[in-house]
Simulated assay, not measured.
Amino acid sequence: MGCDGGTIPKRHELVKGPKKVEKVDKNAELAAKWKYCALSQEKLRRPIVACELGRLYNKDAVIEYLLDKSAERPNSEVAVHIRGMKDMKELNLTDNPEWEGERRNAKGDRYEDMHCAMFICPVVGLEMNGKHRFCYLQTCGCVFSDRALKEVKTEICHKCGDPFQEEDIVVLNGTKEDVEKLRGKMEEKRAKAKAKKSKKSKAAETVSKPSDSKDDTSSLQVHVPGSSSTQNGSASSQSAVAGPSGSSSSSKEAKSSTSTATKRSIQHMDEKSEAFKSLFTTHSSAKRTKEQTSNWVTHTPYHF
């Protein structure tokens, strides 16, 4: 069809050129980063947490991900670096007084400003809508604009007063370069933590080994009952003079004395009374004949 009735086709109608690259709307891209959770793609709502790479999440979405990592979720590769809630920081955000909430345009008869954000910088008053650079502190979780941190240079948080360093500043939803720098810092931190743990484990092993050796040496020492300190001293001197033969004889005597002490029964002790001896099972009153012993009965009435 076409080219009839005197119509003159144009070149773009006959020749198909390369397809134009689809451009992403900047406003929609910023809204997706600053108003929606990076993991669940739901609207951000308190409590809001941030990872070490500066991405924003809903706290309940992160907890669900950590409880069941096997479940198939969209954008799960965004949270691969999250090992637990220790890697996250709950943000201390400042509400925007001009933000009216989600019900302001329920009827659809009003203009909805996409740049109006829920939160602002408590120092400068800039809205956290993606047009301005924002950061958070890993020590306390307070959020400020980059302009406020540059203009008012202090080592104390402007909101809560906790001290911080430049290493504790994390950029929220930064560029690719910012994300690569933050990833390098994160890997260095984790490597240092692993090194500290390995050092602590080695130190614990070295402390436990000498204590075990001391226990072994103390267990090897034999204390002979009834021997005085002078007798021990004389025996030690004799064993030192006699050499290995003397030491072997003394060890045999110690073993025989300990064996006799352990083998001696309470019933053969003359100094003990009969009432005391009757408390033990070795006494003659505790022994029963076969007629006195009862037959073996189970808890069930079955007999085999």
Rank of each mutant, 00 (worst) to 15 (best):
G6V: 04
T7Y: 08
P9C: 12
E13K: 04
E13D: 14
P18D: 14
K23D: 11
D25V: 01
D25K: 07
K26N: 11
N27P: 00
E29A: 11
A31H: 08
A32V: 01
W34C: 01
C37N: 05
A38S: 11
S40I: 02
R45G: 04
R45H: 10
C51A: 13
C51S: 15
R55A: 03
Y57E: 03
A61S: 15
V62D: 00
I63F: 08
E64R: 12
K69F: 06
A71Q: 15
N75T: 02
E77N: 08
V78Q: 07
H81K: 06
I82M: 04
G84N: 15
M85F: 07
D87S: 08
N92D: 01
D95I: 03
E98L: 04
E100N: 03
G108R: 06
G108K: 04
G108P: 02
D109F: 05
R110I: 10
D113R: 04
M114P: 08
H115D: 07
C116K: 10
I120E: 01
L126C: 09
E127T: 00
N129C: 08
N129V: 03
N129M: 07
G130Q: 01
F134V: 00
Q138G: 11
Q138H: 06
V143G: 00
D146L: 05
K150G: 07
K153Q: 14
T154M: 08
C157F: 02
H158Y: 04
K159C: 04
E166F: 01
V171P: 00
N173W: 09
K176F: 10
D178V: 01
D178L: 02
V179E: 14
R183E: 01
K185T: 04
E188I: 01
A191M: 08
A191V: 05
A193T: 10
A193Y: 07
K202F: 12
A203R: 12
A204L: 13
S208T: 07
K209L: 13
P210K: 05
S211Y: 06
D212N: 09
S218N: 13
S219W: 04
L220E: 15
Q221I: 10
V224T: 05
S229D: 14
A235Q: 05
S236E: 12
Q238M: 10
S245C: 08
S249F: 11
T258G: 06
S259Y: 05
R264E: 05
E271Q: 12
S273F: 04
E274V: 05
F276Y: 13
F280H: 07
T281D: 15
S285T: 04
A286R: 13
A286I: 03
A286E: 15
K290Y: 06
Q292S: 12
N295L: 13
